[in-house]
Amino acid sequence: MLALPSSDETLLTQSKQGDASSFRALVERYTAPIYNLAYRLLRDPMDAENVTQETFLRIVLSLERIRSDAPFKPFLFRIAINLCRDAARKKRPLLFSDLDSAAPRADADEDASAAIADDAPTSWERLEEQELHARVRDAIDTLPPKYQLVIALRYVEDFSYAEIAQALDLPLNTVRTHLRRAKQQLRLVLEDVGGS
């Protein structure tokens, strides 16, 4: 019988029963995405590798306690993100402290300014595709880490809103708000750069 790719949860259950090849399949499946996210957050290939490896080691050591009826992917990423936080805190305590903070700014102001940005004619939308992509790439780096994180999960890792909520342990509405604000700030940055 030709095997369809097993679901994460199936592989997890089999790993719990001691099947090493199932766990290896999970490692194969998620090494690249976790590395990618860790690299994006930490900007260091060595740190990204360590976080990726440590994530799987944490999983395998607590295998018995992991619920196999809950989605595995957000759980896995939650561990990876926490490890990134630890690594970032060690390296750049100030810069990344923002990954933890919930709502640092006056939200009303932010919303108001962004509402204007949403309607105003923009200069960035006339850019060539390549140029726009490059500007977006640079603009992302200026966002608070908290927003970079939701952007990475949503657009780079292709998480659903629900998966982001589970991975970050946030209510769904907060995720929605984070993403909206992240994009609003991004527009503002693009506008600043595009206008000059």
């Binding site: 690249a32 990618n36 790439r137 952007i151 657009y155 780079v156």
Partner: peptide, 9 residues
């Protein structure tokens, strides 16, 4: 945003 570069492991 979807076109953001991926780091290659």
């Amino acid at each position: 945003l979807h076109a953001l570069p991926r780091a290659r492991a």
